[in-house]
Simulated assay, not measured.
Amino acid sequence: MNNKNYKYLTFTLFAAAILWYLMFVIKPFNFWIEMSVSILLLILMAYFANRDIFSLGKVKIRYILIGVVSAIALYGIFYAGNIISGYLFPFKDAQISSVYSNKSNANLALIGLLLFFIIGPGEELYWRGFIQNTLGKKFGENKGYLFSVLLYAAVHIVTGNFMLVIAALVCGLFWGWLYKKEKSLIPVIISHAVWDLTIFVLLPLM
């Protein structure tokens, strides 16, 4: 990664932080529409730097199974984490509720469609397909993975929601590892999409 590409990657990260701040703090309009538009903007910026970002390869049954099973596993981690964190952080319920309160801005069908087809897949294209992949080429696979995890969590700091930052850290570790292991975005995209749909629409934790 040359210096020009590094500066561009940094620019997109600043853009992501601003977009996350607008979404979670300012909330100028519908949260789910804003998140979808924000993700699409980040993908577009990533595409300008890497035209191969949409070259996902062949969809294999194995990838589908890994995606679904890993989503279930991650949901289990969050289910247990929700219980444990209740004993550790007295503010847990209030902060998680503030995220779920955004569901009142749209009907569940629309939220589910946006999560499954735009938000989940889009986040993986940007964070793993662009950020982790680019950093991996610069610093090596393992360091690129760790740096991308930290950046993914760091962007959520602007929300002022500690539980959301922890959630991003866990998700970043999980999906980043899955991408590093499988060398394909397909199972990670499926995992993220299924997990999003489950934890926000089908089986919310609150």
Rank of each mutant, 00 (worst) to 15 (best):
Y126V: 05
S101M: 01
L135D: 04
I186K: 00
L113G: 00
G129V: 04
I64H: 06
Y63Q: 09
F117I: 13
S98C: 09
L151P: 02
G86S: 11
L113Q: 02
H156F: 02
F48N: 15
K138R: 15
K183N: 13
A168S: 14
Y179S: 12
N161S: 09
S55Y: 11
Q132K: 15
F130N: 01
I119L: 07
L146N: 11
L185C: 10
K143G: 11
F147P: 05
K103A: 00
Y75L: 07
K137I: 15
I111Q: 01
R128I: 13
E123V: 10
D93Q: 12
L65K: 01
I119Y: 04
F89A: 10
F117W: 14
F147Q: 07
V155C: 05
N107A: 03
K60I: 00
D52H: 06
V69M: 10
G57T: 12
W177A: 15
Y63V: 03
G122S: 07
F174A: 15
N161F: 07
A94N: 06
H156W: 03
K103D: 03
P121H: 06
Y179C: 11
I157T: 15
Y63R: 03
R128D: 12
L108H: 13
E182V: 08
N133V: 02
I189L: 10
K138H: 04
K138E: 14
N102D: 13
G136E: 05
K143P: 04
L65Y: 00
I119K: 01
F48L: 15
N105K: 13
G120W: 11
L169D: 04
L65S: 01
A167Y: 06
E123W: 06
G160K: 01
R128M: 09
I64L: 04
S148K: 13
A94E: 08
Q132D: 10
I166F: 07
S101V: 00
S85K: 06
K60E: 01
N107T: 06
V165G: 02
I66D: 00
L114E: 02
Q95G: 00
G122M: 10
I119Q: 05
Y75E: 09
G140A: 06
F130I: 02
K180T: 13
F116A: 07
V59I: 15
A153S: 06
A71C: 12
A94I: 10
A109K: 13
V188S: 01
R128S: 14
M163W: 06
Y152M: 10
Y126G: 05
N105Y: 09
V69R: 05
L146W: 08
I190G: 05
A73I: 15
F117Q: 07
A80G: 13
G76R: 03
D52T: 08
G81C: 01
G122E: 08
I131A: 10
Y79D: 07
F48G: 13
G112I: 13
E124N: 04
I118C: 03
F116L: 13
T159V: 02
S101F: 00
L88K: 11
M163V: 05
F147E: 05
G172Q: 11
N142T: 15
L125S: 07
F130D: 04
I84V: 14
K183E: 13
D93N: 10
V149F: 02
F91S: 08
Q132P: 12
P90F: 00
N82H: 07
K183M: 09
Y152R: 14
K137C: 14
W175H: 12
K183R: 15
T134C: 11
P90N: 03
P90Q: 03
A153Y: 03
S101L: 00
L74C: 03
A106P: 04
I119D: 04
A106H: 12
S148F: 08
